[in-house]
Nucleic acid binder design. Structure first.
Lengths: 250, 250
DNA sequence: CCGAGACGTTTCTCATTACCAAACGGATAC
DNA sequence: GTATCCGTTTGGTAATGAGAAACGTCTCGG
């Protein structure tokens, strides 16, 4: 725990961050941003280019789509994704809303895949986006089905408030998780984003990995109870099919 | 050009590659793969974890979805993507096939986005995937609309043969590019993958960026001329709408 | 039940290597 | 025309990453 991290590794990813923030930059701009010498920044940029994670466009360096390549390959390799992909396509077609697959990673929720349907909300969400586990319907559904000790670890890490409706009290959150377990699904309306409602069901393909399948839609639609039931029903059907596909190979 | 690249930067991305290949690994495995000391490998892994690009799961380290996060953000930032996203959704709905957006990067083609429709082929393609420019209908369409000097640079780089139907003769390729320019679109059948056909149209939102919008589908369907015309028509309609959207903001 | 080996991790020393300073050549602006 | 910015290259030096050795833990096999 006391092993220091390597300066050059931290720096090269700081350079990556600068290239992201500035949407491309040259040695001078990077040097200024990180308070290092121009020639040093140049070395990092050249090296990033050499390994294919940046491209040199006439002196200014930009991040390469190699990141997208690697990220998508990680996405496709995930077995839950493989099992869920087709069902998510189906959900987007049949509901017209925004079905989303989220998994847990390092104590947070990561959107692994989403596919907007014809009448889907335009949220700012995207594959790879991280959120805390306690702030979304997906995250809470995941949390509700995680091993107790890891739930404790997450709660002990503190419950950051992101909107005025975020549940920040550990006790109230635990009650919420219990009721999610009881219902078999979670419903959030105007919780994370005003005007958005989400229904989510758990996917726990094996004991280690917990995921969730969710559908986001406008609050006014989800407040209609029969429509809400319809979405929950569609999610549970998909969950069953995904389960089977996960177990018995592709 | 003679500046050496930084060893530690090259190494850390070699570690990333090992983590990808092995689907997660510990210091010992990485050390063996790269022929470095275990403690050295440990340092790289710890550092990768510290910057958030790897996660430590009880001694074995895995690549984090941070790559997906960064990759998707790069994708969404691309202005051609922003302009084309909705049209690609529409194409996937209305044709049921596999519409794909590709852009040029560093002398190659990169799939920036694709969205399978209901009856789409299952190719192994994915967002971020790189191909040579001369081996796909998308790539050739891009090449056909690039500035002459950059076309020369690509051709001088050599035309790798990937299938027995790859056009490897520069002269024949130039003729092909000319006819693509003339037709306003490219059609490939059983060229890159047996059983697949592709139609592609160019997107040249401004002089620097060249992209292509394509639809892939089974050869038997595309051999039907009226269907092929239909696809080309749909692509050109989309291309026009994308053009307008690109120029006049979102 | 115990010992051997593998592994992740830590600490330490030394040589490598990444850092900075200075300078070059080109482009741009005044 | 000159001054200043930039990307790039070079070389000397000191910080830093590399490797050896050892600790604690776990797993396996005797």
């Amino acid at each position: 725990m006391t092993t220091p991290t390597m300066q050059s590794v931290e720096r090269v990813f700081e350079v990556v961050d600068v290239l992201w923030r500035e949407d491309g930059a040259g040695p001078a701009a990077v040097a200024e941003a990180l308070d290092i010498h121009r020639s040093t920044a140049h070395g990092y940029l050249r090296s990033l280019e050499a390994v294919g994670y940046a491209v040199n466009d006439g002196g200014t360096y930009e991040l390469s789509y190699r990141f997208l390549d690697m990220g998508t390959r990680l996405q496709y390799r995930n077995r839950v994704f493989q099992a869920a992909r087709e069902e998510i396509s189906r959900l987007s077609r049949e509901t017209g809303e925004l079905p989303t697959l989220a998994v847990e990673e390092a104590g947070g929720a990561v959107i692994l895949h989403q596919r907007p349907g014809e009448n889907a909300l335009e949220l700012g969400t995207y594959s790879g986006m991280r959120t805390p586990l306690h702030t979304t319907a997906s995250g809470k559904t995941i949390l509700a089905h995680m091993p107790a000790e890891r739930v404790d670890a997450v709660l002990d890490g503190g419950l950051e408030r992101v909107t005025d409706r975020t549940v920040t009290d550990p006790e109230r959150l635990r009650e919420r998780l219990a009721s999610i377990r009881e219902d078999g699904h979670a419903v959030d309306v105007d919780q994370q984003v005003v005007g958005m409602g989400t229904v989510a069901v758990p996917l726990h393909p094996d004991d280690d990995h917990v995921a969730s399948l969710a559908i986001a839609c406008p609050s006014e639609r989800i407040r209609n109870e029969s429509y809400q039931d319809e979405l929950v029903g569609a999610l549970k059907e998909s969950r069953n099919r995904i389960s089977i596909k996960y177990q018995y190979g592709r």
